[in-house]
Design a binder for these strands. Structure first.
Length: 681
DNA sequence: GTTAGGG
DNA sequence: CCCTAAC
């Protein structure tokens, strides 16, 4: 097996590939700073939400009908995954123009057929508009920062997202300005719809006009903590129940002093927004780019990973346990399909929400990237007289064998094993971009729990198999090759977080679990794994002598097992009796039954005990050792050190008699007797 | 294989 | 707890 040139040595002696820096350290600098405008625009943004909210307030019956409609159709809703805009209306049937719009775009209509619930999606320049019912039922899916309303024959779009560059003055026809895949700016929508005579667009970057409601951007003042953790409070939404008062942020403006917060009950009210908003939202310091409407997919992978990183953080974090629901799109690919992998469902309702999700459009593909797999622990024994070629062949055979029929692939999502093979990616949540960072694959033995072993009785390695911990071992008797499949995660049949999945290798039955070591490779870039390289790279690599691994691949660092007070006492007692230089005796006399304590361990422990006893109590860490024991440690150490010195003096004087008598410079502070000798500390 | 000491 | 030199 040839290893990549840049492999580093990771824990357990595995050769690990260099982790791309970008994957480890997300950088903020990819998001230019434009703070001043941003605050105002955020306020403006919020204001528009409120505006939309107010409008809806004024039309409660629409809300009711919407709610009913949504409930009825929720399970059939197709998620407009690459829809940047969605609309709601109380009675969209009143707007034949919308349907006409779809008809005017045969291509779009065709797609709408295959994607029954698409609302408005854009791909390239096409516009797809679903049926009115579907539009109604998709009322939750609003582009962040966009408040829309259909009233009469007019669609009012209060668009205030700063990243969307609401810029009606710049009337570029949509035909001339291809829309970024997966999203569509309000401007483009407005332009497009205006060109179709469908929509009266009532807002621009400086002004919101929703019916009688009118506000200028200059009149908006933002008074809020500049804290993106709370930035979800600024996520606008036009649905009443999606908001509740929030005391954390305060927004003051000429219209409302309320701050609204996305209601956690609303699962996906803020799941759809464009990549620009995404960027803005996840910028920790609000250094935001308002520049363009570039989709995330247009950015280099390095940068995209940044957003993925934040997405991961949001999984566990987020205000009041609900993350801000942002989902970077297009992480794995640049085509529209890859942009559709987001459902943005988070929080405790995630699973159920996923369940409710109806089959998506047929062209929704989940794109995953597995950087590499780690081959499970492979134990090989080969005669030292064997040739290197033989070794290579042996390893190759072993690997081939376990890859061929000894292994299967396990899938972990957010630390939980997905065991139901019949679930769809959508149902299992794999298609959720938010979760993809916690998606892992692992290689696990195919024949678990029955260990597949061909070893013979009485084989020296049998004792490993006797271990209660599962460890399948394969032995090729002819070639004296043993390779063990040490499956780790497979042991735990229940849904265990991967961090708790442990690896057992010790033969001692009283052994403690080994450190977590999952044969799992995240789809993120940070994977420690063996990376085979194509043969064409073999030659130059072979020229470079590879550093010998410090640890054998088979050897695993023992788990740390702190000494108990009882053990310390036993050790102290033994050292008091035997001295500090007879660790083998100490082991045999006092720790003979403690298989996990070697005499080196005992020696090391004594060393640390002496150190601990010398430092001040407040500097000590770990489980506190009784001072009485530490005192005994010091005394015994002093005594035996003195004994050792005396012994050395005797030896020296005996071997090379010196006229100079070594004298002890005593600055006695404590005297005590030990074993009849005066000991000075 | 043990011991001592650095890491 | 690991590693290694020295014995």
């Amino acid at each position: 097996m040839v290893l990549h040139k840049r492999l580093h040595y990771g824990f357990n002696g595995y050769l690990v590939p260099h982790t791309p820096r970008a994957a480890r350290t997300p950088r903020k600098r990819s998001i230019p700073k434009r703070k001043t405008d941003e605050n105002q625009l955020r306020a403006f943004d919020l204001l528009a939400t409120i505006a939309g909210n107010l409008m809806l307030e004024g039309n409660k019956k629409h809300s009711a009908s919407l709610t009913d409609s949504i409930k009825k159709e929720e399970h059939n809703i197709d998620k407009p995954l690459n829809a940047a805009l969605s609309f709601f209306g109380s009675d969209v049937n009143r707007f034949p123009d919308l349907n006409n719009c779809a008809k005017e775009h045969p291509h779009a209509q065709g797609d709408a057929g295959s994607r029954p619930a698409s609302v408005i999606t854009t791909s390239d320049c096409s516009v797809k508009i679903g049926s009115p019912e579907q539009i109604v039922s998709d009322r939750n899916k609003f582009l962040l920062g966009t408040s829309t309303r259909i009233a009469g024959n007019k669609l009012s779009v209060a668009k205030v997202s700063p990243s969307c560059k609401l810029d009606c003055e710049n009337k570029t026809h949509i035909e001339n300005e291809p829309v970024d895949k997966g999203k569509m700016s309000v401007r483009n929508l407005a332009n497009m719809c205006n060109s179709n005579g469908l929509v009266k667009f009532l807002s621009n970057k400086d002004h919101i006009s929703c019916g009688s409601f009118s506000v200028k951007r200059e009149g908006v003042k933002l008074d809020t903590r500049d804290d993106d953790e709370n930035s979800c409070c600024t996520q606008p939404n036009t649905v009443n129940k999606a908001f509740r008062p929030c005391n954390e942020d305060r927004i003051t403006n000429s219209v409302s002093s309320h701050c609204w917060k996305v209601n956690p009950d609303m699962k996906d009210g803020h799941r759809h927004f464009d990549a620009d908003m995404d960027r803005r939202h996840f910028s920790q310091d609000n250094k935001n780019s308002f520049k363009g409407q570039r989709p995330l997919s247009d950015y280099p992978i390095k940068k995209r990973k940044l957003y993925d990183y934040y997405s991961l953080n949001n999984l566990s974090g987020g205000t009041n346990g609900k993350d801000c629901g942002s989902t970077p799109k297009g992480y794995w690919g640049d085509d529209p399909a890859s942009l559709e992998t987001s459902t943005g469902v988070t929080g405790p309702s995630a699973s159920s929400a996923v369940e409710q999700a109806s089959p998506r459009s047929r062209d929704s593909h989940v794109k995953l990237q597995i950087k590499s797999f780690r081959v499970p622990e492979l134990f090989i024994e080969i005669p030292e007289t064997a040739t290197v070629a033989s070794l290579k062949r042996t390893v190759m055979e072993a690997v081939t064998k376990i890859l061929g029929d000894g292994l299967r692939v396990g899938v972990l999502l957010q630390g939980k094993k997905i065991r139901d093979d019949n679930r769809t990616l959508l149902q299992s949540g794999i298609s959720d971009n938010n979760k993809q960072d916690s998606l892992g694959f692992m290689l696990e033995p195919n024949h678990f729990p029955a260990p597949v072993s061909v070893y013979s009785e009485g084989h020296p390695f049998l004792r490993f198999c006797e271990s209660p911990k599962p460890s399948a071992r394969y032995v090729d008797a002819d070639n004296l090759v043993h390779y063990s499949l040490q499956h780790k995660a497979a042991v735990k049949s229940t849904d265990v977080p991967e961090s708790n999945i442990t690896n057992f290798m010790e033969s001692e039955h009283d052994s403690a679990p080994s450190p977590p070591d999952v044969s799992e490779v995240k789809s993120a870039a940070d994977s420690r794994a063996l990376v085979p390289v194509p043969p064409e790279n073999v030659e130059p690599l072979n020229m470079v002598p590879m550093r010998k691994p410090k640890r054998s691949v088979f050897a695993q660092r023992r788990i740390r097992r702190p000494f108990t007070v009882c053990e310390v006492e036993t050790l102290v007692q033994a050292v008091e009796n035997l001295g500090t230089g007879r660790w083998r005796d100490v082991k045999m006399r006092a720790f003979d039954n403690a298989n996990h304590r070697t005499y080196v361990d005992l020696k090391d422990k004594w060393k640390t005990l002496v150190h601990t006893a010398r430092i001040s109590p407040r500097q000590r860490r770990g489980y506190p050792v009784p001072q009485e024991l530490l005192d005994r440690v010091l005394l015994a150490h002093a005594y035996w050190s003195q004994q050792q010195a005396k012994q050395q003096l005797k030896q020296r004087s005996r071997s090379s008699p010196s006229p100079l008598k070594v004298k002890f410079v005593e600055t006695p502070q404590t005297h005590f007797l030990m074993n009849g000798d005066l000991v000075v500390v």
